[in-house]
Design a protein around this nucleic acid. Structure first.
Lengths: 204, 204
DNA sequence: CGATAGATTGAGAGTTTTCAACCGATGTGG
DNA sequence: CCACATCGGTTGAAAACTCTCAATCTATCG
């Protein structure tokens, strides 16, 4: 899955990197894609904002991954905004370059298709989870997912809520309960997982 | 989007069609993909079954579309089962043929990537909708989506519920209310939409 | 016409959200 | 380096929506 690094290497060496601090936007929901973004360092989140001003946290991108490719390949405007979750450096690959890349390096197109296919599975499993798991189960699963996959990141209760499809108050409440039960340990705004089994065996 | 028909035409003319009746499986969740399926006629649904036996209705496939491609391109087992929703005829394209197709007709790979990209958008908008819309709003949106896009199909309350992330009792209840309000008209097990605006402006 | 799958309606339970008030951490500018 | 502003976190209580369970009814099809 980290194929993008090697495929894009020659291209990326020629362009300069851009820097972002936490909270900066890479692109906005509704904009038309002009190319794709390659993350060299840091973490980026994809967020959808509903008419009722509710945010959903859709995907996380880390070093070595691309973003913006979904809209480009679908030939659609961005359906969500991407925002740096930490200090981030990235490179921009314009649309035209992507096209020639697809022609000259079919393995790039193949890697994009594979990424899309894996992300589609993940998204559809989340749809199923939203319908079949309780809010508490989803929050616990999200704690495990976000913390195990991105341990260095200090996730806010709000981000955890927006990823799990819940509210930050419910996240806080569950985390307090989980700490009492010894499943996690809170330290400042961060936390660590002490008993993963317990987290994944919550019933409600 | 209906590109598959023309791209696959020469290939498909050489193979024989298979028939399915409502309820038959094309493939089962967990199986390894051995190729992709091209729908010549009919309707197929993709369903995920959770540990707690709750079904989620993930995607619909109609004439001219392919299925099974997500798992093949992700190199993963099927994450859901595909089931005929009506009398269906399809053709099977084995894995090996797909590979050579990708090499010789890059537009096929491109069409697959585009389909995956569009489906990923749809799935992520559903995630956002599950978090930000009430069950009633989601059910109403599902009535509009399923009935306008596939008007010939008689959708069961259960299917509508599994698509909207709700229960069939809630679907029944809302449909009764919507009929009272004149937004839909129920006839037998089928229904028709009388006032789409009203359906999409539900608040709860 | 009978069997079966699907639909309806009611009542009650329960999780989760919402609203509100308050607390604690973090970071910046004077 | 302190003060203060701001952002993030905690906890409580009440409201509300949806689900669950149950009983009954109605289409549809062989």
């Amino acid at each position: 899955m980290q194929k993008f690094k090697e495929i894009l290497k020659p291209l990326l060496d020629e362009t300069y990197s851009k820097e972002l601090k936490r909270g900066d936007y890479l692109y906005h929901m509704g904009d038309d894609p002009k190319g794709i973004f390659y993350i060299e360092e840091g973490l980026v989140g994809l967020f959808h904002l509903s008419e009722s001003a509710k945010e959903s946290f859709l995907r996380v991108f880390s070093e070595g991954f691309i973003l913006g490719h979904r809209s480009l390949f679908a030939e659609e405007p961005y359906h969500a905004s991407s925002i740096a979750l930490s200090k981030t450096t990235y490179k921009f690959i314009p649309k035209g370059l992507c096209s020639s890349l697809c022609k000259q390096h079919p393995e790039f197109l193949k890697a994009v298709a594979m990424t899309l296919a894996k992300d589609l599975r993940a998204a559809e499993l989340r749809i199923a989870g939203l319908a079949s798991h309780s809010a508490q189960e989803r929050i616990a699963e999200t704690l495990v997912y976000l913390k195990l996959k991105y341990p260095q990141q200090v996730w806010t209760r709000k981000e955890i809520a927006e990823y799990s499809g819940s509210t930050f108050e419910s996240v806080t409440r569950l985390m307090s309960k989980l700490e009492e039960e010894g499943a996690i340990h809170k330290s400042g705004r961060d936390f660590e997982i002490l008993n993963m089994k317990a987290l994944l065996n919550l019933k409600h």
